[in-house]
Design a protein around this nucleic acid. Sequence first.
DNA 1: ACCTGTCTACTGACTTGTCAGTAGAGCGCC
DNA 2: GGCGCTCTACTGACAAGTCAGTAGACAGGT
Lengths: 208, 208
Amino acid sequence: MEASISQTVPATSRERILEVALAEFAACGYEGARLQDIARAAGLSHPTLLYHFESKEGLYAAVIAAATADWAAETRRAISGNRQGFEQIASLVEAAFHFFETHANFVRVLRREAIEGGERLGAASADVLAPFVAEGVSFLERETAAGRLRPHDPLELMALCYAAVFTHFSDAAFRSRVLGDDPLTPAALRRSRDALLALLRAALDPGG
Amino acid sequence: MEASISQTVPATSRERILEVALAEFAACGYEGARLQDIARAAGLSHPTLLYHFESKEGLYAAVIAAATADWAAETRRAISGNRQGFEQIASLVEAAFHFFETHANFVRVLRREAIEGGERLGAASADVLAPFVAEGVSFLERETAAGRLRPHDPLELMALCYAAVFTHFSDAAFRSRVLGDDPLTPAALRRSRDALLALLRAALDPGG
DNA sequence: ACCTGTCTACTGACTTGTCAGTAGAGCGCC
DNA sequence: GGCGCTCTACTGACAAGTCAGTAGACAGGT
C-alpha cells in the first residue's frame, strides 16, 4: 500500500478513487458508502473500481493505509526537534492541528473506527499506537520529574489532547450546525488551538 | 414519544426493542443496523418490530427521543443548585460523567450523528442545544467578570469539556484496545473525571 | 499478440417494508 | 356459559429494490 492522499487533482484513476473513497467513507461510514457512488464521483463505473481494488474491504484498507502513512510522517517530523517541557507539547498540538486540517475526512473515518472499537483497522493499528502512547507517557513523566512540567496524570492528559483535537475535526459539521460558525476556517482553527494551548499552559507550564 | 430507557429488564416488547435498538445503532450505525437483528435480540420477528414502530427511521427517532428525555432531566437537575464559579463547572462535569456512565450506547449514537452533521436528528436538536450553549457562555462570562473564574475563551472551554467527556465514552472500546484497560469501570471513570477537573481547576479556579 | 483499463450486462445475497392470516384476551349480550 | 365481535401482538411468505462482486467484450497502446 504505497499511494498517499495528494492535495492536488489526482492524475491516475487509482488516486482519484482513493481520494473520493476517503470522502465517502467519512461522510457515510463503511456500511453506508456505496461503491457505485465512489466510482461515479471518480468518473468511472463501479466494476472499474473493483478492477483497481479487489473488494470494498480492500479499498477501505488502502484508504486507511494511505492516510496513516501521511500521519506517521508528520508525527515523526513534530518530535524530531527534541524539544523540552511545554514546548514539545505545544509543538505536537500544533502539528496535529496542521495535519488534520488537510486530512479532516481521515479524522472522521478514524472516529467511526474508534466508536466501533477499531476492529476493522486490524490488530496492526493498536500495535502501532501503543508504543507511541508509551513514549508520550514516559516523556511526560521525565519532564515532570525534571521540574519542567507541573504534575498531571500523563495518560489522561494525552487522552484529553486526543479528544480535543479529534473532536474539533470529526464533529465540525455538528458544531457548525449548532453554533452556526464554520470550525474549519484558518481563523477558527487558530482560535481552537490557542484555547487548548492556553488551558494546557495554565495547568502544566511552571513558568506560565 | 414517552418511554425512557430503563435500567432493569424491560417488560414490554416496545421497551425491549428500544433497548436493543439503541445498542445495535450504537454498535453498527444507522445504515449498518439490521431490523432483523434488532428484532431477534428482542425475541421477536422483524414484522413485529415494524408493527410497533412504523419504519426503521421511526424506530431510530424513538430511540433518540427516549434517551434525550433522560438527558434533559439529568442536566436540569445539575444546574438547579445555582452554584457559583468553579463549583458549578465541577457539578456539570460530574453530572455528565454520571449520566453517560448509564447511557454509554447513547453517546456512541450521538457521536455518529455529530460526525455526519446531525442531519438525521432534525433541526429540533440544534434548536434545543443552541440555547443551552448560550446559557453556558453567559454563565462563564458572568463568573469571569465577577472574578470567580480566571478568563478563558468560553465557547472553546465548553467545546473542550464536551470533547473530553464524549470521547471518553464514545471511544471507550478503542482506548481499551490500544491501552488494554477498560475505561468504563467506576475506578477508570473517576480517574478520568478527576484528571479533567484537576486540569480545569488549575486553569480556571482563582483559589485553586 | 498481449496487456491495461474500461465498459455493459448480469447474478446472488440481502434488506426493508407489506400482506394476509392466526392466537388469544376482553367484552357485551342473550 | 356460550356466541359473536373487536383489538392487540405476532408470524411466515413475499414484493421491490439495492448492493457487492463477476463475466465477457472492446479499445488503445506496446
